[in-house]
């Protein structure tokens, strides 16, 4: 099969409307970058899913991080994406202006070096992410434990994708198939998606981030839907093994247990969060029970955007009262948020 044939097929598609969800924000960005929507029939709708861990982080979590940043002899380490997410008393970026100690990190391992160099300071690490990210936090905490460090806390808002996919299938049943998140699948493998394929009869296809990958995944999903199939297929074999990264899965199991977690816009989802456990529990920075969330600002439709009910440009605030420079809702805040990606690619 040639790429040309795939594009011709997808362009000419004239069957019943098909809704495909790309779970991962990186796919949303790649779909825009490659102009994929202009290459396929308007009858194939691509919906952006909840695949931005920053956008789904609730107010209570930001407030917890802010508490650490304001406490004495304590410093908060975070990725830049988190800086603008609104908390009850403003964002971390606002608080930094008021003297909060917030330092940007590029890798969680920086916390170990800092904690060793400055034993009198406690380093609170804002650990936000999905399965792609969680193993690096697990390795970091394992290293801190091996070195006997006591001045690190992990404030985890680490989440797993499967409970959210189930939630979406239960609450937004008209999605016909899923473009599974490529780099989450590197860790988890593909077998987990069989649950959705079998129980909800949705095709689940894993793919990479090149234009060819994305066209191939759309083609495969459309063909399965036309044939009435719901199979799990891996089209990202040079990075994703069917069984995933077993070593990473082992360290995740060793360091974390799952529990309820709050998703901004969706609500609390059972078993969707990862919390430190066993000998590592002493490093937990008070991550559990952070379920309080500010109501989404009046008029913000993020709750509908992340489950694919509407596209970002259907929100009345989009591009008017809500832009990346002056975000109104969480999906506009992060580089991977659906609204932010749509805005930058208008």
């Amino acid at each position: 099969m040639e790429i040309r044939e795939i594009i011709d097929y997808l362009k000419a598609y004239d069957g019943p409307q098909i809704k495909l969800m790309e779970v991962c924000g990186t796919h949303t960005a790649a779909i825009f970058k490659n102009g994929i929507r202009s290459l396929i029939s308007p009858k194939i709708k691509l919906i952006s899913g909840p695949g931005c861990p920053v956008c789904v982080t609730p107010t209570a979590y930001i407030d917890k991080c802010a508490e650490y940043a304001m406490a004495e002899n304590t410093e908060l380490l975070t990725y830049g994406d988190m800086m603008k997410v609104p908390g009850t008393h403003g964002s971390l970026s606002d608080l930094k202006g008021d003297g909060a100690k917030v330092t940007l990190m590029y890798s969680p391992f920086e916390a170990v070096e800092k904690a060793e160099a400055h034993p009198d300071i406690t380093y609170a690490v804002a650990a936000v992410g999905f399965e792609t990210t969680a193993p690096s936090y697990a390795l970091m905490i394992d290293e801190a434990s091996k070195r006997g460090l006591t001045n690190i806390r992990l404030v985890t808002a680490l989440k797993t994708v499967m409970p959210a996919l189930k939630w979406i299938c239960d609450n937004q049943p008209d999605i016909d198939g899923f473009i599974c998140p490529g780099h989450v699948s590197v860790i988890t493998g593909c077998e987990q998606y069989r649950y959705i394929a079998d129980n909800y009869h949705k095709p689940m296809v894993v793919c990479g981030f090149e234009a060819e990958h994305i066209l191939a995944v759309i083609y495969e999903l459309v063909r399965q839907i036309e044939r009435g199939e719901a199979k799990v297929v891996n089209l990202y074999k040079n990075a994703v093994r069917w069984e995933g990264n077993v070593k990473a899965q082992d360290i995740l199991r060793k360091c974390f247990e799952s529990g309820e977690a709050m998703w901004r816009g969706l609500g609390a989802i059972p078993d969707s969060g990862l919390y430190l456990t066993g000998e590592y529990a002493k490093y937990d920075g008070g991550s559990k029970g952070l379920v309080k969330d500010m109501k989404l600002p009046e008029g913000c439709s993020c709750g509908s955007v992340i489950i694919g009910k509407i596209n970002p440009d259907e929100c009345p605030m989009f591009g008017k009262a809500c832009t990346p420079m002056d975000p109104y809702g969480p999906c506009m805040v992060s580089a991977e948020g659906a609204c932010g990606i749509w805005y930058r690619n208008r």
Binding site: I6, H183, E210, A216, L235, N238, A239, V240, R241
Partner: peptide
């Protein structure tokens, strides 16, 4: 995030050939 998560096959051209064969 500062962590190597997988070893990749390096030949991108071959990867795309394999992808379309798979389809």
């Amino acid at each position: 995030a500062g962590c190597a998560i997988e070893i990749m096959a390096e030949d991108k051209a071959q990867e795309l050939i394999d992808l379309f064969n798979e389809i």
